[in-house]
């Protein structure tokens, strides 16, 4: 992880020698001031954001996969990210319709986080209601898919009525970017991710029990309602706050838990939790490094990279493993 972190920081449109990267990270004077500036104000925040995003999305994917008894569950697939998108679209594109003092608050980063968290919470609750009625896990996935297209449709209705400037803002957001985050946003993001991860810690033991199904879990003294509440809280905070800052990022939440299950060969959530944290951070750093390969004049949208890497991983998983979990 340290290695990928260094690699990530040292690569970019402007080539900076590894030695200088070390220097500026450790606080001493780098050879050129611009290098130091780039590293401290652009690359380091971006790397931290990548780590936070990777960890948060992967863990929320892990929690959801056990909770919904479904290997295909994840914040993106189940429509949580689209829920967040809807929330953000509502704010970015719809703010014009609201009184100005209100829209000012909404357009601040707090407002966007709030909208995004509420959006993902809304979708998660809807899915939960549906999953109570449908025992069939396949139909839950389909419902998630429907939510995605539903929110997509509402977003297009919004965009029809909004100005070019608003539209551009939203489009950039939806392409997903972990760059251009100020230190202040990083702070907010780390606090919300840390909080989400802490709540997730409390769900690890209940999740282990749920590996045997709800009835066994109950017979072992588990309070299902409480566990469910904690889980919803954790996943919607993680998925919501991350999506607010980084846009809807695909496949990390789905693929990383599988990778760590494959590597660590266990179902114990204590081990998987640390495993997904580590792998999630590494994958996100690698994806980000790829998205801004040296030599290119431009930075590719991170969402495209995660999909390009993630989709084949998922296909390969389904094909290669019969008993997927």
């Amino acid at each position: 992880m340290l290695l990928t972190l260094l690699l990530n920081i040292s690569m970019g449109q402007v080539a900076i020698p590894m030695k200088e990267v070390f220097k500026s990270l450790l606080g001493s004077q780098a050879e050129k001031e611009t290098w130091e500036y780039i590293i401290m104000n652009f690359r380091l925040p971006k790397a931290i954001a990548a780590i936070l995003v990777g960890m948060g999305l992967s863990v929320s994917g892990l929690l959801m996969q056990t909770f919904f008894r479904n290997p295909m569950a994840g914040p993106y697939v189940l429509g949580l990210s689209s829920g967040s998108s809807l929330g953000v679209a509502f704010v970015l594109l719809g703010a014009g319709f609201l009184p100005s003092f209100f829209s000012e608050f909404l357009l601040s980063s707090y407002g966007i986080i709030l909208a995004s968290c509420l959006g993902s919470l809304f979708v998660l609750l809807m899915i939960l209601v549906v999953s109570q009625r449908l025992r069939d896990t396949m139909s839950i996935l389909i419902v998630g898919l429907m939510f995605s297209s539903f929110t997509g449709a509402i977003v297009s209705v919004f965009s029809y009525f909004s100005s070019a400037e608003q539209l551009q803002k939203y489009t950039f957001w939806s392409m997903g970017s972990i760059g251009n985050l100020s230190w202040e946003s990083i702070m907010i993001l780390s606090v919300s991710v840390a909080f989400g991860l802490l709540v997730s810690l409390l769900t690890l033991k209940p999740l282990d029990a749920l590996l045997l199904g709800e009835n066994y879990a109950k017979s072992m003294g588990l309070n299902i309602k409480k566990a469910r509440l904690l889980l919803i809280l954790a996943t919607s905070i993680l998925a919501g706050s991350i999506t607010a800052f980084a846009g809807p990022i695909a496949f990390v939440g789905l693929a990383v838990p599988h990778l760590s299950k494959l590597i660590f060969q266990t179902s114990s959530h204590r081990i998987l939790f640390s495993g997904t944290l580590l792998i999630g951070a590494i994958i996100m750093l690698v994806c980000d490094t790829v998205s801004q390969m040296p030599g290119f004049e431009f930075t590719l949208p991170i969402n495209a990279i995660t999909s390009i890497i993630g989709a084949p991983v998922v296909v390969w998983l389904i094909v290669s493993k019969k008993n997927m979990s």
Partner: peptide
């Protein structure tokens, strides 16, 4: 309890599965 229902898919080993019986006694992290 020992129930008839099918277990959801997972990667548990026999030892880990038996160990889950200790849940009522373990700490918050299990």
């Amino acid at each position: 309890l020992v129930l008839t229902e099918k277990l959801p898919p997972n990667n548990l080993t026999v030892y880990e599965l038996i160990a889950l019986g200790r849940q009522p006694y373990t700490n918050w992290l299990g």
